[in-house]
Amino acid sequence: MGCHKNNHAHPCQHSSSTCSDSEFILHKYIDFPKLTCLNEKAENSCLKIFTRQPKSIIDAEFVESDADEALLFFIPFTGLVILKSIIIMGAGDLTEYPKTVKLYPNKEGLDFENVEDFEAAQTIDLVADVNGLVKYPINVCKFQNVWSLNLYFSHNFGAESTKISFIGLSGEFRQAKKDLGFTLYELNPNPSDHKLEGFGSFTPQLT
Rank of each mutant, 00 (worst) to 15 (best):
H4K: 13
H4Y: 12
H4I: 07
K5Y: 13
A9T: 13
A9N: 07
A9G: 07
P11D: 02
H14P: 00
S15N: 14
D21G: 02
D21C: 08
E23R: 13
E23C: 06
Y29I: 01
F32P: 02
C37R: 01
K41Y: 15
K41Q: 15
K41S: 14
A42D: 11
N44Y: 10
N44W: 04
I49M: 09
D59Y: 03
E61L: 15
F62R: 11
D68P: 07
A70G: 00
F73R: 02
I75V: 13
P76G: 05
P76F: 05
I82R: 13
S85I: 00
I88G: 01
G90K: 08
G90T: 04
A91Q: 04
A91Y: 02
G92K: 10
K99L: 05
K99V: 00
V101D: 11
L110D: 08
L110E: 09
E113D: 14
E119Q: 11
A120D: 04
A120N: 03
D125I: 07
L126F: 07
A128S: 09
V130D: 09
V130G: 00
V130S: 05
L133F: 05
Y136C: 05
P137V: 09
Q144N: 05
V146L: 04
V146G: 03
Y152D: 03
F157K: 04
S161H: 13
I164P: 07
S165K: 10
F173C: 01
F173D: 00
R174Y: 06
K178M: 12
L180I: 03
L184M: 07
E186C: 03
N188D: 10
D193V: 00
H194R: 05
E197W: 11
E197A: 10
Q205G: 00
L206C: 02
T207C: 08
